[in-house]
């Protein structure tokens, strides 16, 4: 797409995003807020998946660690947002520093180990009920407030999330285009070559893992202020795997892809669960369908369909 066309598209999207709460009701505003938040989570997964070639299935851990930390600080210790929110991101990032150990491994081992790590965090949220509130979790999280400025409604919060997500997308764009980001793609393409060129691949992947965990933590903080409560579901395996699926559906290695994927998944869930009780099955079928028919996401699927149409037209 030419540059002018892209700018026009971006401006249209931005205008639509800004106008949405004025035009649509609270239901849609809320749903789109969630789409931004989970899109950000999917984006954090994709830093590893799309750029470094690591398939992490423990990102719900950072998301939940941040959400719990912020919630507990706000609700139980009445810590103000200005401290509780950064503390949440910090806690999630610290967890990423520990779980980043997983980059000692690659391939299947990495996948399995991140699953296991994810379960530890879920298990702690679930079993350490004296501190985490067990299955009930932590409730009554207030809207964020910094000094005299406070968020009063879901509409206002929508704009806050939009601003944060846009900033993150911008920073992410620079990061993946930087020497650091290029090195990640180099590692994905050929780790043996990268080592022989002088890259400490393990350290590079570890750094990417931590940055990715920090981004997921930020999504967790945004989530807890939207949701107003957090329970062990936030740390559960389905959250991790759905975040990965969002990135894959939208197309890995892009910035809009994870957000498109998040829109599709959340939209689908909302729609299906309104009339069908077995929506987990539908989600499962989506997983299967994506693997079988759109392994490189909608972008890839569109490309293949176009190629087939052209072939049919030519033949």
């Amino acid at each position: 797409m030419p540059r002018a066309g892209r700018i026009a598209l971006a401006l249209t999207a931005l205008t639509a995003a800004v106008l949405l709460p004025q035009v649509a009701g609270p239901f849609w505003t809320g749903l789109v807020t969630q789409m931004y938040i989970f899109g950000l989570l999917a984006l954090s997964v994709d830093l590893l998946l799309g750029h470094a070639g690591l398939f992490s299935l423990c990102h719900a851990s950072f998301f939940a660690m941040a959400a719990y930390t912020t919630a507990i600080l706000q609700v139980r210790y009445a810590v103000p947002t200005a401290l509780a929110a950064p503390a949440g991101v910090l806690a999630g990032t610290l967890l990423a520093l520990v779980l980043g150990l997983a980059v000692r491994t690659r391939g299947v081992y990495f996948i399995l180990i991140t699953i296991a790590f994810g379960y530890v965090v879920w298990g702690v949220a679930h079993r350490w009920s004296s501190f985490t509130g067990g299955d009930n979790g932590v409730t009554n999280v207030p809207f964020p407030a910094v000094g005299a400025w406070r968020v009063e409604s879901h509409t206002e919060y929508y704009y806050l999330v939009l601003a944060v997500v846009l900033l993150c997308a911008l920073g992410y764009r620079i990061l993946v285009a930087s020497p650091f980001g290029l090195a990640l793609r180099g590692i994905k393409a050929s780790e043996t070559r990268m080592r022989s060129l002088g890259f400490a691949c393990g350290l590079h992947l570890y750094a990417a893992f931590v940055v990715s965990g920090a981004l997921a933590s930020l999504a967790g903080v945004l989530y807890v202020y939207y949701n107003r409560f957090v329970n062990p579901v936030a740390a559960s395996f389905p959250v991790s795997v759905e975040a990965a699926l969002m990135a894959i559906i939208g197309g890995t290695g892009t910035i809009v892809g994870p957000f498109i994927g998040s829109w599709i998944m959340l939209g689908l869930r909302n729609w299906v669960s309104s009339f069908f009780a077995l929506y987990a099955s539908v989600m499962g079928l989506v997983f299967i369908a994506v693997v079988l028919w759109a392994p490189d996401g909608l972008v890839g699927l569109a490309g293949r369909l176009r190629a087939r149409a052209q072939k049919a037209g030519a033949g």
Partner: peptide, 8 residues
């Protein structure tokens, strides 16, 4: 190679 702040 570690620079994260600017495009290549």
């Amino acid at each position: 190679k570690w620079a994260p702040h600017a495009p290549v």
